[in-house]
Design a protein around this nucleic acid. Structure first.
Lengths: 209, 209
DNA sequence: GGCCCCATCAGCCGATCGGCTGATGCGGGG
DNA sequence: CCCCGCATCAGCCGATCGGCTGATGGGGCC
């Protein structure tokens, strides 16, 4: 067997501390080489195009600029594997990341060995999910959870501003009747029966940007 | 001038990556020595008592077990300085950390030099706040923001479950009239006029645990 | 050309909400 | 001792909400 070249990694996280941590952890692995660091989504997209790494380690929360999902979408579109490494394991985040083309989804709480293994898998295009994430994905398969339509998300966004039906109607240029129809379906999908409950679920599940 | 002994640090963060990052960053500073690491609040409290570090670097979000605020409270009570290092800068988090006795409040997005400086300050009991945090504190001083009473938080918690007035009343063993009175005051303090709006602010501001 | 999803709208009605005025009791601080 | 913040409760009333039934039209998909 010939010596395999190291896996080339691009880091993307807005926190210096996290980048330093990843750098330190990955530095101990001979077959993994960090070839670049980005502190924003825009930077990551540019560097990924320039460096063509084997894997991009991407945080979903990036503070300023485009978010991790959008960065993932753009980078994945160029054929580079993106391994999402983030703090949260909500359904909405996972779904959006996967739809954006992420190769894997890891939680920052994961043990370093898992991270290394996931990176090596991702370099070959194989998918790795953190156990809690995998569980949620499985659960989602069994019970088709709330998948709100875009219009319903519009309504939900207005609702989360505390607006009444009339104001929502005006904001979206539709009638109150339509607002109420959408609200009813939103309640069904989210498993609630009041606007307060809907807002709670929306915030909890991070359904809104 | 005699050589000053290094500042002795205890890290507390539930993410291995972050601990590794801090370890790497602080390792480059000769006058700062990391004497211990904790992955949970309980561990941090125990280690702080055993090691009596000069400063504890404390994250507020700790996953399982007691949260960072509670850990801060217990450690600060023993006279050890706690420097909060976290991701969020919401009013509620800042307020609770300060009330718990934190010596300073830094954001993870802060530049490493600021972190070093803050650690050295904290070792001497001096307070350091990240600029965004300082701004919020000042703003708070100027305009006495929502300070909900405990009872109001009880109501808000039930409200955030999507419960109606009757159910809230039953849950808290009070009459509907009282619930409505509290709700009115909550609306005033949060600057909203619907339950949906109140829930939105509550979640946004992390007013509930 | 049907079928289904989605978005749109209407009207009805009982339940709930939000604002109002006003009242009681308790505890702490000046 | 009085004042004030806090928690408790009552009643009233117009506005809003949530559930219901039912209808129309556009766009995919087979």
């Amino acid at each position: 067997m010939t010596a395999t070249p190291p896996v080339r990694i691009l880091l993307c996280d807005d926190h210096v501390v996290v980048r330093a941590g990843l750098l330190a952890l990955l530095g101990s692995e001979p077959d993994i080489e960090v070839v670049g660091e980005a502190g924003s989504g825009e930077e990551a997209v540019a560097l990924a195009a320039k460096l063509t790494p084997d894997v991009v380690l991407m945080d979903l929360q990036l503070g300023e600029g485009i978010d991790g999902v959008e960065a993932t979408r753009r980078i994945a579109a160029t054929g580079v594997h993106v391994l999402v490494l983030t703090t949260y394991d909500t359904d909405a985040d996972i779904t959006r990341a996967i739809e954006a083309g992420a190769t894997g989804y890891l939680l920052k709480a994961e043990r370093p060995e898992e991270l290394f293994a996931a990176i090596r898998s991702a370099a070959q295009g194989r998918t790795t999910l953190s156990p809690p994430v995998a569980s949620r994905v499985m659960a989602r398969m069994r019970k088709p959870l709330p998948t709100l339509t875009e219009r319903e998300l519009d309504i939900l966004a207005q609702l989360s501003q505390g607006l009444g039906n009339r104001d929502i109607a005006r904001a979206l240029f539709i009638s109150e009747a339509t607002v109420k129809t959408h609200l009813g379906r939103i309640y069904d999908k989210l498993g609630v029966d009041t606007r307060a409950g809907a807002v709670a679920v929306a915030k909890e599940q991070r359904l809104l940007p």
